[in-house]
Design a protein around this nucleic acid. Sequence first.
DNA 1: GTTGAAATTAGTACGAA
DNA 2: TTCGTACTAATTTCAAC
Lengths: 227, 227
Amino acid sequence: MTETSRGTVHEGGQPGRIGIGLELDATHLKILEVLRENGRISVAALAERVGISRANAYTRFEALRADGAIKRFTAEIDHVRAGLGITALIFVTVRQQMWRQFRAQLATMPEVEYCAITTGQHDAMIQIRVTDVAAVHAMVTDRLANIPAVKATETVFILDEVLRRPYVLPSDRGPGRSARRPAADPVGGSGTSGASGNSGGSGEEVPLGMMRFVGAAEGRAQLQRDA
Amino acid sequence: MTETSRGTVHEGGQPGRIGIGLELDATHLKILEVLRENGRISVAALAERVGISRANAYTRFEALRADGAIKRFTAEIDHVRAGLGITALIFVTVRQQMWRQFRAQLATMPEVEYCAITTGQHDAMIQIRVTDVAAVHAMVTDRLANIPAVKATETVFILDEVLRRPYVLPSDRGPGRSARRPAADPVGGSGTSGASGNSGGSGEEVPLGMMRFVGAAEGRAQLQRDA
DNA sequence: GTTGAAATTAGTACGAA
DNA sequence: TTCGTACTAATTTCAAC
């Protein structure tokens, strides 16, 4: 995989605007912490739980929303009860120069809940939720296989979802740690963030160098525009 | 992998109570649809958008919540802005009979956002969010490798998150489709839901037979109790 | 960044269709 | 069941400090 998503696919969006839009302090993180566990809490109650005034809470709440630190509020639904009892992961190898088409096709598949571009053996991983096993088969052999951008797939079933946290926050690692300042990690010496000591663990491959990580916001915006 | 999560690990929870707790009709699904996109909408506004009375909306809203069809409300946070710019997937091979320990250890790792038990080459997939690449390395070699239950790992970086839908619903596939009644899938003939025609697609392995799919609710409850 | 008071809105209870 | 209305409690907004 050589061509990732950046630059080639994302023609929209200001290229310069990547970094800082709002300095998140400890109070902001505390707000996010509460909101992540109870997205329907009133701002008044939020203020009380965080320990700030109502007006302050409103200001910060709006700032976080406007800045994009809070993307949206959503309800977590029990897919089994909603009728989608089967979950599967499909690892896709994408033909070069066809990422745009691949993304466009993805947008037309409502059973896809999540899609990420990855390093490693495959190029992308998609997670689907469907009603029965036959639907997985149909998805892979009929819908995905018919996309020219898809070179190969590998499917795996999810037997159980052990854990899903509503979006991890840096404050989870311990109190008094501001965002944007990673602070010394619990390891020993390798604190030279970025492309520091890697490879050699338990068989992971970490091709450092041209890796431009994540940047989920842009990718998501792009796709949602197509959808 | 022989021992999945069911029966061995989940000692809590009523075994008989798996299925129906509430018949979801079209109105219920419509409510979920709205709530999934705007978890903070007022019940009054929800009623208007769904086309029912406020009183009815309150009743159904509470029913969905009590039944568990709505698990919780949460805020989607931009992890990059929150200071967690690196996302990685770690595929783990777990030593037999040690699932319980593996789960317990997972609960102590705040950087883990998601964990699912899978079929295929590996036994579990976990998704982590951290501040830098070094933290991934530390996670894999120090924390995971030191768990006896972990036999091997394989790490992959997420370069871009193309799509994340706030929980897929069956109604996404088309209007007028009730839950719990899959209806004929858009494929041709293989409508014999359950263990029907599989294998032979593009290289996926589907070991049917003893597969007991998903059941996410129980697993999650179990882990959250430990955390 | 905080407090307090007014206006609006949300949540509840009840009777009728 | 679902709807409509009236009542009560809470939240949001806006003001001055």
